[in-house]
Amino acid sequence: MREVTASGQTVEEAVQSALEQLNTTRDQAEIEVIDEGKKGLLGVFGTKQAVVKAVKISSPVEKTATFLEDVVKKMNVEAMVKTTVTDNHVTYELSGENIAILIGKRGQTLNALQYIVHLALNKNQDQFYSVTVDAEGYRQRRKETLESLAVKMAEKAETLNKKVALEPMPAFERKIIHNALQQKAVKTYSAGDEPHRHIVIQPS
């Protein structure tokens, strides 16, 4: 949370100056008047400036972005966090050097981060957000890889006329495979329990 103390000729001026410094609007800040100021004699003698304290109220989404930045920094990785909110979905995009450390093997570190960020954001909150943590376009690249894997495995299932089981994947990755094979002449379903739940492709 950031706060500033500002002064001005009147309380109103002091507030305006504080809000400018915080780069925010009045409804997103908490304002406390420390000194109302004095006009003084003829506006010359004994004037006292009005002083206010303003605290910027940050939203849970912003707080979580700060949290993610902090965690990444403590992992000894230099990265920036870009936040995008669409309806109830929040995307935190990481960019910087050594980003591979944050992705991990098959995105396992990125998925773990995403899960922790999801928990932190939705803790004690009325509004529920779904969360994606992305790094240097990893999610899109992974999507393309999974789609081509899906097509290849579907062909395999058809030629062998046998069920083909894929390796375990998190729910959002399985969804990509299900979607990719919807128009194909194969059936897909998930088997096993989390965290070993995996896709099975069945020739029809």
Partner: peptide, 17 residues
């Protein structure tokens, strides 16, 4: 549930060599 959070914490911590 099933140590899912513990696993996620470990994954992140182990990644930060």
């Amino acid at each position: 549930k099933n140590g899912r959070i513990a696993k996620a914490i470990r994954t992140v911590v182990y990644a930060a060599k």
